[in-house]
Amino acid sequence: TLFEALYDYEARTEDDLSFHKGEKFQILNSSEGDWWEVRSLTTGETGYIPSPYLA
């Protein structure tokens, strides 16, 4: 399933992933509550992002 970022986000820890509004992601793991592990389709990087920032 693909999701798109609604807002920009700046990583706060080394496990987080910074991203920009409009960036698209593949969800790798959504079992961690509000923090999902994703792969950016723009950069190929993986990390955790806050799920409320996605649509």
Rank of each mutant, 00 (worst) to 15 (best):
F25D: 01
I49R: 01
Y7C: 14
L54V: 08
Y7P: 01
E14A: 12
A55P: 12
G44A: 02
A55F: 07
T1Y: 11
S30L: 07
F19R: 01
N29T: 06
N29D: 10
E23W: 13
H20R: 13
V38A: 08
T43C: 02
R12A: 10
S51K: 09
S30D: 12
L41S: 02
K21I: 14
L54Y: 07
L28K: 14
T1R: 11
I27F: 07
E4R: 02
F25C: 04
Y48K: 11
G33E: 10
F19G: 01
H20T: 10
G44M: 05
G44C: 07
E32K: 11
L2K: 03
E32H: 12
L54H: 08
D16Y: 13
A55C: 13
H20W: 05
F3V: 07
W35C: 10
K21F: 13
Y48H: 05
Q26P: 01
A5Q: 02
G47P: 00
S51A: 14
S40P: 01
E32T: 10
D15A: 12
L2A: 05
S40H: 07
Y53C: 15
E45C: 11
R12M: 10
T13W: 13
E37Q: 13
K21D: 03
G33I: 08
G33K: 09
P52I: 15
A11D: 02
W35G: 01
R39G: 00
L2P: 05
P52W: 15
G33N: 10
G44P: 00
K21A: 09
E45G: 05
S30V: 10
R39C: 05
R12K: 12
G44W: 03
G22R: 01
S18H: 07
E10M: 09
A5C: 07
G47F: 08
W36H: 00
L41C: 12
A55G: 11
S31P: 09
A55N: 11
E37N: 05
L28M: 05
G47C: 09
W35T: 15
E4F: 08
Y53D: 09
S51W: 14
Q26H: 09
T13L: 09
E32R: 13
E10H: 08
R12D: 07
K21E: 03
Y7V: 07
K24T: 07
K21V: 07
D15W: 15
Y9S: 02
L54F: 07
G22L: 01
E23S: 03
E10C: 11
E4Q: 08
E32P: 08
F25P: 15
G33V: 08
E4T: 14
D8V: 03
S30G: 09
E32F: 15
Y7S: 06
D34G: 14
I27A: 02
L54I: 09
I27N: 00
S30P: 05
T46N: 03
W35H: 05
L28E: 02
G44H: 04
R12N: 09
T43K: 01
E23D: 14
F19T: 03
V38M: 02
E10L: 09
L2D: 04
E23L: 01
E4I: 13
Y48I: 08
Q26M: 12
T46R: 08
A5H: 05
D34W: 12
P52R: 15
H20E: 06
W35I: 08
A5R: 01
A55W: 06
H20I: 10
T43R: 00
T42W: 15
W35Q: 10
E37F: 15
E45R: 13
L6M: 09
F3L: 06
V38D: 00
L2C: 12
L54G: 08
T42S: 11
I49W: 02
E14Q: 11
T43M: 00
Y53P: 08
L54Q: 07
Y48D: 00
E14T: 11
P52Q: 15
K21Q: 06
G44R: 00
Y48N: 09
K24Y: 11
S51E: 04
P50W: 15
E37Y: 15
R12P: 09
P50M: 10
A5D: 15
G22Y: 06
E23F: 02
F25I: 03
E4Y: 15
D8T: 05
F25Y: 14
T43Q: 01
L6S: 05
S18K: 05
E4V: 13
P50D: 04
T46P: 00
Y48G: 00
A5E: 04
T42F: 06
L41G: 01
Y53T: 12
T1K: 11
D15R: 15
S31H: 08
G33D: 08
S30C: 13
G22M: 15
A55H: 11
D8E: 08
R12E: 09
Y48F: 11
L28H: 00
S30Y: 15
V38Q: 00
L6N: 06
H20N: 08
A55R: 09
L2T: 09
W35A: 03
Y7W: 14
Q26R: 05
S40A: 07
L54N: 09
S18F: 06
E14L: 10
E45Q: 13
F25K: 02
I27W: 02
D15H: 14
F3P: 01
R12T: 12
G33W: 09
L2H: 06
F19L: 04
D34I: 11
E23R: 00
W35D: 02
T13N: 12
T1S: 10
H20L: 10
G44S: 15
Y9G: 01
P52T: 14
S30R: 10
D8R: 15
L28F: 05
Y48R: 13
H20V: 12
G22P: 01
D8G: 04
P52N: 15
E32C: 14
I49T: 00
T13K: 11
T1Q: 12
S30A: 12
L2N: 04
E45N: 09
D16Q: 15
T46K: 14
D34V: 08
H20Y: 10
H20K: 13
S40K: 10
G22E: 02
Y48L: 11
T13H: 13
N29L: 04
G44Q: 04
